[in-house]
Computed example of a mutant assay.
Amino acid sequence: MMLLLFVPIGITVDLAEKVGRIIENDAPFGEVAFYYLNFTVYFANLLFPLFLFLSVIWFTSKLANNTEIVAFLSSGVSFTRFLRPYIIGATIVASFAMFLGMYLAPIASQGFNEFKFKYLRKNKSVQQTRDVYQQINDNDYIYVSSFSPKTNSGQNFTYEHFEGNELKYKILADNIRFIDKDSAYQLTRYIKRSFDNGVETVEKENRIQMDLPFELEDLTPVEYAAETKPYGELLDFIASEKRKGSKNIGRYEVVKLKKWSLPTSIFILTIIAVAVSSVKRRGGMGVNLALGISIAMIYVFFDKVFGVMAGQSSLPAVVAVWFPNVLFGILAVYLLQNAKR
């Protein structure tokens, strides 16, 4: 019910903000409708624990205001027994949230991001185009200072081939361009330096066309690639990116770990909600809702700040993702003990 109430509001606010760009860029109605279908799944997945949190506060406060919880506990039933249906419900919701996050949300994320970059952010690149450094396999490395997906060309290209720890040859070019009809790369002001038993040979060409052992996608990795992959494919993708030396590993690890931390947060927030709202307060349900929303906003703040820190700094992804859950898990235990008393 909370999803049915709030998601349409979110769609209305988002449409009001973006309708000008949608009309300006002539987005077809079918694609707009499909975008908002993906929008619903994408954001419902992100906000699932918070909607459950507010729902639990709402109906538990109703029970408390009607003095039903006092009567329940006065009959000799323990608070743990009172909490049991909440945990069963949280388990059902967490199972659905895990399935949603691992399999359905990646599909929605693909459509959501494709529409956003096609019609709403046309001047922004969907791909990483600056300082691309990749390890292609165990022996080969590439680097390009900038790459344009529109022209399939890049500047300051370097290709290095190792055997063991020994550099066998190095290719440098001022410009690299992918020739689609030939499925080959054209290098301008090409230099190849080869090393054999300490002897260096240099080969130069003003322009040369050649096959190189990497795909065009290796020069233009998509920024949101990890979000669009089901869990099994995500694990393979992260392993591949680690071999390539991608600088976005922190961001990818955050996406992976959130698939487990989000269902866990459902249990933590459920316990906090029950502990906060099971006490009858003078201000009634409004006080419980205000307190609950404050806790929810603090949780979202920690979750977003630490998620960004993992993607932009050396902070380990496991710390960034799990710190809010650990912190609020401690808070849940404390509030639960007080509620029992």
Results as ranks from 00 to 15, higher is better:
Leu291Ile: 13
Ile107Lys: 14
Lys258Thr: 05
Thr188Gln: 12
Pro230Cys: 04
Ser153Gln: 12
Ser240Lys: 13
Gly307Tyr: 05
Tyr185Ser: 06
Leu315Pro: 01
Arg207Glu: 15
Leu50Phe: 13
Ala90Cys: 04
Thr67Phe: 12
Gly20Phe: 03
Ser146Trp: 14
Ile88Gln: 06
Ile179Phe: 10
Phe178His: 11
Arg282Glu: 09
Thr12Ser: 10
Val308Pro: 00
Glu241Ser: 06
Leu167Asp: 10
Gln186Met: 13
Phe306Ser: 02
Ser148Trp: 01
Asp196Leu: 15
Glu200Trp: 12
Thr264Ser: 10
Pro49Tyr: 13
Ile238Ser: 00
Phe323Gly: 01
Leu83Cys: 08
Asn66Cys: 03
Ile208Asp: 04
Asn139Phe: 07
Leu216Cys: 03
Arg251Asp: 05
Ser146Thr: 14
Tyr334Ala: 01
Tyr103Gly: 01
Pro149Leu: 12
Val56Tyr: 11
Glu217Ala: 10
Val300Ala: 05
Pro85His: 14
Glu203Cys: 07
Asp211Tyr: 15
Val13Arg: 02
Ala290Asn: 04
Gln155Phe: 14
Asp303Met: 06
Val287Met: 06
Glu217Val: 06
Leu47Pro: 00
Val287Asp: 01
Thr220Leu: 07
Phe267Met: 10
Lys256Tyr: 11
Ala16Pro: 01
Leu15Gly: 05
Val326Cys: 01
Phe162Ala: 06
Tyr36Ala: 00
Ala239Met: 05
Phe214Met: 07
Ser145Gly: 12
Thr158Cys: 04
Met2Ile: 05
Leu83Met: 15
Tyr224His: 09
Ser145Ile: 09
Gly283Asp: 03
Pro85Ile: 12
Leu335Asp: 01
Lys280Arg: 15
Phe267Cys: 08
Phe43Ala: 03
Val255Arg: 09
Ala90Met: 06
Asn288Lys: 09
Met1Ile: 09
Pro85Asn: 11
Ser74Gln: 07
Pro8Arg: 05
Gly329Lys: 07
Phe82Gln: 04
Gln135Met: 09
Ala71Arg: 13
Lys170Thr: 12
Ala296Ile: 02
Thr67Ile: 08
Ser313Thr: 15
Arg193His: 13
Lys204Leu: 10
Ser145Glu: 15
Val255Phe: 04
Asn66Ile: 03
Lys258Asn: 14
Met102Cys: 11
Phe267Asn: 09
Lys150Phe: 08
Arg130Ala: 08
Asn338Gly: 04
Val77Glu: 11
Lys124Asp: 04
Pro28Asn: 07
Ala108Thr: 04
Glu24Thr: 04
Tyr190Met: 11
Tyr103Thr: 05
Ser61Glu: 07
Phe6His: 00
Ser294Pro: 00
Leu172Thr: 15
Asp174Lys: 15
Gly76Asp: 08
Lys204Asn: 10
Ala44Trp: 02
Glu166Pro: 02
Ile266Gln: 07
Gln135His: 10
Trp260Arg: 02
Thr151Ala: 11
Ala310Gln: 03
Tyr224Asn: 05
Ile272Leu: 14
Lys150Thr: 13
Lys229Thr: 00
Ala64Gln: 03
Arg121Lys: 14
Lys192Gln: 15
Ile330Tyr: 02
Pro324Cys: 05
Ala184Val: 12
Gly286Cys: 00
Gly10Cys: 02
Gly10Phe: 06
Phe59Asn: 06
Val199Glu: 15
Ser148Pro: 02
Lys204Trp: 04
Gly164Ala: 11
Ile136Phe: 14
Arg177Met: 15
Thr188Arg: 13
Thr220Asp: 00
Lys259Cys: 06
Phe51Glu: 07
Asn288Arg: 08
Arg341Trp: 05
Thr67Glu: 10
Lys256Thr: 07
Leu289Ala: 03
Gly307Cys: 01
